[in-house]
Amino acid sequence: MCLAIPARVTRMLDDDCAIIELDGVQKEISLALVDDVAVGDYVIVHVGYALGKLDPAEAQKTLELVRAMSLVTDDTTPL
């Protein structure tokens, strides 16, 4: 459940609103549920509202962890 997409904030508007961009698609969303969002931040958008901010450092860490996981073969004892 809960279709939500990370998208980049490109412009701040009045009334706690902002324009987000996703590969050439622009949409107005509400920032009423989040604090301290700035242009350039990635937010998680659900039904036209930002639910939270995406942490780029953690995103990178997850990908590195994925890579590391695939390389681990020594410290496991199958069977």
């Binding site: 279709l3 997409i5 996703l22 590969d23 050439g24 698609v25 949409k27 958008v45």
Partner: peptide, 12 residues
């Protein structure tokens, strides 16, 4: 097109 993929992503 990337834009078409993005719209589909947004609207499910």
């Amino acid at each position: 097109k990337p834009e078409v993929a993005a719209v589909c992503e947004l609207l499910g």
